[in-house]
């Protein structure tokens, strides 16, 4: 059934097609150029990314090095869950973190039922949208993004890109040395729904909270600038 369906669909589609060659089609697409991106809200990549994370109803921390990152994670999970435990994927970058310094006890693997917090190390962060990008795989099983109550994501300043076009260019580059990932996830906020009377509620299926830790040389004013950009929206931007 499917073979004849395939043949008849292709025949009908080709009948109303341009009849151009592959090279002509590629040239025609190239000629369309690229799309305009959203303007960055801040004065640099860091402040823009942080502002958009805040606008996406995430919370943020800014840290200079891995030791500070571990401390920030420890403080955050203790404050919220009175725990020192979390689950993280088998990402060598996470494994190399000085967890003991902050008394955090990570378990490396896939999130299991009842575990409230997962930690991911993002591949990229997109300033235009305030999204972090993760690839599925051992380093970050999908369940760790989707099933915890609380999702913490570490992202390196060096992995921030201005817009989604640049993100794809970086992803394409990564694919030259590693296999195509099964899943590429752009995450921009805690799980939410507006399906009941248009009222925005968090924690529809996945995380109720989403915490992003920006690691590296972040300009000193970036966090303050981001908070100032996001502040008016935080008081007036409620979707209901």
């Amino acid at each position: 059934m499917s073979d004849s369906a395939r043949a008849s669909i292709f025949a009908r589609i080709r009948y109303s097609g341009s009849g151009a060659s592959a090279a002509e089609i590629a040239a025609a697409r190239e000629a369309l150029g690229r799309a305009p991106a959203a303007n960055l809200p801040g004065s640099d990549l860091c402040s823009s990314f942080l502002a958009n994370v805040l606008l996406n109803r995430g919370t943020v921390d800014v840290v200079g090095n891995r030791s500070e990152a571990v401390t920030a994670v420890g403080k955050y999970i203790y404050q919220h869950y009175r725990t020192h435990r979390l689950v993280a994927g088998n990402d060598p970058r996470l494994a190399a973190m000085p967890w003991r310094d902050a008394g955090v006890l990570p378990r490396f693997g896939e999130l299991e039922a009842g575990e409230p917090v997962a930690l991911s190390y993002a591949r990229l962060g997109v300033a235009e949208t305030g999204a972090v990008v993760t690839f599925t795989g051992k380093a970050n099983p999908a369940a760790n993004n989707l099933l915890p109550e609380n999702h913490i994501v570490v992202i390196d300043v060096a992995d921030l890109v201005p817009d989604m076009e640049m993100a794809w260019s970086r992803i394409a580059h990564a694919m030259t040395t590693e296999q195509r990932p099964r899943g590429i996830n752009f995450i921009a906020g805690p799980s939410s729904t507006g399906d009941i009377e248009g009222k925005l509620v968090y924690g529809a299926h996945g995380p109720r909270h989403w915490h992003v830790i920006l690691l590296g040389e972040v300009p000193q004013a970036a966090l303050g600038e981001a908070q100032a950009i996001a502040a008016p929206a935080a008081t007036t931007g409620e979707l209901d």
């Binding site: 996406n56 999204a131 899943g183 995450i187 921009a188």
Partner: peptide, 15 residues
């Protein structure tokens, strides 16, 4: 919204 919470790209089965 400027961006949905989850925008995902799936290529196929597990490797």
């Amino acid at each position: 919204q400027a961006q949905t919470c989850y925008t995902s790209f799936y290529s196929g089965p597990r490797r």
